[in-house]
């Protein structure tokens, strides 16, 4: 029934609600350890967040750089977490993954990563994160649905400089793009900005980019209330 289901990510739809993070921790293969990454893109200036699950590369860099042959890609194209007896916690995979996916659990001396909820997807169920995502940033389902319902088109090819990476997971992008081009230079802050980056912060109401919202402890909040 769900054999032809695919994973589609659209970070531009992410609202940063953390539901995926909570749901991910429920996955049986890494209970209690959420493997999905939910990062602020530029926390000082924007509330934009990006959810990143494992993209399950066709030729996984993480598996190739593993000195212990601990990372395995199975017949379904799923790149699994490091094998527990083999992983030697060298962090090669963490540093080499172009999407920044694997997590090093230093305490366990073990790399852990998203395996697209293998306990669920191997039995025809949707991955935890895609099940709970309220905004469609993470979607698991038939390709036809995505093609009908979205303006954006899915791609599963990424161009990192000279390296082309093909993945099992799709990324939504503008129509007509065959491979999502990655640019680094333009996003280096010292290239694009020649003054205080905070000057670009939005004016008006406090938002997630406003440090004060997060920084205030209980005491400071009380003081602020008293001060009116």
């Amino acid at each position: 029934m769900t054999a032809n289901y695919e994973f589609f990510i659209d970070p531009s739809r992410c609202i940063g609600c953390q539901a995926c993070v909570q749901a991910c921790g429920e996955c049986e293969t890494h209970r209690g350890h959420p493997m999905i990454h939910l990062d602020y893109v530029d926390r000082a200036n924007s509330v934009q967040t990006v959810p990143v699950v494992c993209m399950h590369c066709e030729d996984p860099t993480c598996a190739k750089v593993c000195p212990a042959e601990a990372i395995r890609k199975d017949d379904h194209g799923i790149v699994h977490s490091a094998s527990k007896p083999r992983c030697i916690a060298c962090s090669n995979c963490v540093l080499a993954c172009p999407f920044g996916v694997p997590k090093m659990e230093s305490r366990y001396e073990l790399m852990m990563k998203c395996d697209m909820c293998y306990d669920r997807t191997s039995r025809g169920r949707k991955p935890m994160c895609a099940t709970v995502c309220p905004s469609g940033a993470l979607y698991y389902g038939p390709r036809e649905y995505v093609e009908q319902q979205r303006r954006e088109k899915p791609v599963n090819e990424f161009q990192f400089g000279r390296q082309t990476v093909r993945t099992k997971v799709n990324m939504m992008t503008a129509p007509g793009i065959k491979a999502l081009p990655f640019d680094v230079a333009d996003f280096l802050p010292f290239e694009a900005l020649d003054d205080d980056p905070l000057s670009l912060a939005r004016s008006g109401a406090r938002d997630a980019g406003d440090l004060a919202v997060w920084d205030l402890g209980e005491k400071e909040v009380e003081e602020e209330i008293i001060a009116g």
């Binding site: 970070p11 990143v52 993954c97 920044g100 939504m172 680094v184």
Partner: peptide
């Protein structure tokens, strides 16, 4: 790695 994840969003957003 965290910046690589951010660059994923930034590049996707740009397209």
């Amino acid at each position: 790695p965290p910046c690589r994840r951010r660059l994923l969003a930034l590049n996707q957003g740009r397209t």
